[in-house]
Amino acid sequence: MSTFIELLVGGISVGAVYALIALGFVVIFKATEVVNFAHASLLLVGGFVIAKTHPLVGFWAALLLGVAGAAALGALIEFAVIRRANVLSHSVLAIVTIGVDLILVTELTRQIGTEVLALGDPWGSDVLQLGSVNVPATRIAALVSAAVVITAFLLAFKYTSWGVAMRATAEDSETAALMGVRRGRVSMGAWAVAGALAAVAALFMCVFPTPGLDRNVTAVAMKAFPAAILGGLDSTGGALAGGFIIGITESLVGGYQEELSFLGRGLGDVAPFLVMIIVLLIRPAGLFGTKELARV
């Protein structure tokens, strides 16, 4: 039983991290209708900045720098590429982000090489004992931070004028522009926010029990895509739900690997994608996504 609770807590905490990534993904999609396949590289940049600066300026300042760096990169991608692309379909824009991703990931993995970079976080490998259940401190920190960041984001989305502008653009971008919403600023802001969320997620993806930041982090970040799709690409609540579903699935399947060994090795890595396929078979627009309606 205690194994189950440990796995569940681990899954919820990993799920919160996926939710952070998926949220950024959804924010970009809502504001610009672009599916951002360069999201993994934003994450990698955030983690890389934290890893490289923490010996110089300390952990918290490094975290700030990482968040700022990833946000700036997101804004730069929007400003330099997405805004200027004159294309007929949004699928092509999605492929452009793949191009951006190829450039960034290739360069960063070259910089990282075969090293495993520590992020210098204050939690180390402490394990908290709650009754009969052992939980790494980093998991609790991830859960709490993700909860704080997500709440702050949702409040901002609802009450600040930036959030209102953003929702108006998502609803009907032409009308919003006519009402004086500056579309360029809104979409740049969305990319910056997504970058910042990705950097926070990068931190918790590379702390204990994972060894640190290495070149495989982008592959892990890929699991946030099913999280975003599962919940529905245009739903912030869906991103949260999707993140938790993916996190818990992965953790449970990975944890009970032995019992499930008749299905093959490495099932934990595929389980998120299988869940996504099953959900899409039943609800093609995701759990909470709006079904696309068109007026002729």
Binding site: V35, F225, F273, L274, M276, I277
Partner: peptide, 10 residues
């Protein structure tokens, strides 16, 4: 669109 893209990623 994107849904198919990510579904095929699976």
């Amino acid at each position: 669109g994107a849904y198919l893209g990510i579904a095929t990623l699976a």
